[in-house]
């Protein structure tokens, strides 16, 4: 497993796609901070419930603010990162050396998780710094222990995103092709993300939508105490999603014939 991770590190060391992903996630908060400053300068007051991030303190919610962007960027990266291994035939190089398919799958999942962590960490840190620079650090209403809130919120938001990353990894291994993987990943993201908005309006299916992490990510307000109280539920759904999708992905990948 460590050998496979070392191989992944070498592959990614000069990857333009990796640089592009990190550049998007790093530049986005700067652009948003500048944009927010201009909005304020034109006389509009920023509202936390609507704008999500309104100062340095609320910068911790950059993942909530940019949830869809992060997911789309990550599913594109993962589609290429895994799909190209199948398309170039390079997946054979490791597997024909007797490497276990489960280890191969897990090494890809670990790399995707680490990259997501680095990306969202950079985005959140740059977000806090940028918004503090242009709008001041300010304060977070209704939050008594800010440090604890930051840790809990970051972990919860990261896990919600990681659950989707895990789904994208599974889709990529099953489709074995970058473009097909992209289509299915987009459909999944859009379907579970925006489909939930419709089901949330109905009494009977409302609860079903909370089996999907994107419902929490897109339809919760992480600054509201009622939603903060749902963190354990969000973490549980995320962990179940990660375990389930990885198990299904590994089982099916182990039975797949490789060209």
């Amino acid at each position: 497993m460590l050998n496979l991770l070392t191989a992944e590190r070498i592959k990614l060391a000069r990857s333009k796609k990796l640089i592009l992903v990190l550049a998007i996630l790093s530049l986005l908060p700067i652009i948003q901070a500048v944009n927010s400053k201009m909005v304020v300068n034109y006389g509009t007051e920023l509202i936390q419930a609507k704008d999500t991030v309104i100062n340095g303190a609320t910068g911790i919610l950059m993942m909530e603010k940019n949830g869809l962007t992060v997911l789309l960027v990550m599913c594109t990266f993962i589609g290429f990162f895994i799909g190209e291994e199948f398309q170039n035939g390079t997946i054979r190089n490791a597997l024909s050396l007797g490497r276990s398919r489960t280890h191969y799958y897990l090494s890809k999942l670990v790399i995707a998780s680490l990259l997501t962590l680095i990306g969202v960490l950079a985005m959140t840190a740059i977000g806090v710094i940028s918004f503090t620079s242009v709008l001041g650090f300010g304060e977070f209403a209704e939050i008594d222990n800010y440090s604890l809130y930051v840790i809990k919120t970051f972990i919860t938001l990261y896990l919600l995103i990681l659950a989707n990353v895990s789904i994208y990894v599974m889709i990529s291994f099953l489709t074995k092709n970058s473009s097909i993987s992209l289509v299915w990943s987009f459909l999944y993201t859009i379907g579970t993300g925006f489909g939930a908005g419709i089901f949330l309006e109905t009494e009977h299916f409302k609860q079903v939508t909370y089996w999907f992490t994107e419902s929490f990510l897109f339809y919760s307000d992480f600054a509201k105490t009622t939603d903060i109280a749902k963190y354990p539920e969000m973490i549980l759904v995320s962990l179940i999603t990660i375990v389930l999708s990885s198990t299904i992905g590994i089982l099916l990948f182990n039975r797949t014939d490789l060209k």
Binding site: N3, L4, I10, K11, K16, R92, S96
Partner: peptide
């Protein structure tokens, strides 16, 4: 299979890597 090597049909290489880095990846895999 750890005592085996293979090259099936088209050469399976990382197009964006140099010859040396391609070999480094396979060395790490093995």
């Amino acid at each position: 299979r750890r005592k085996m090597g293979q090259s099936i049909e088209t050469p399976a290489l990382y197009p964006e890597l140099t010859a040396r880095d391609n070999l480094r990846v396979q060395a790490a895999n093995g």
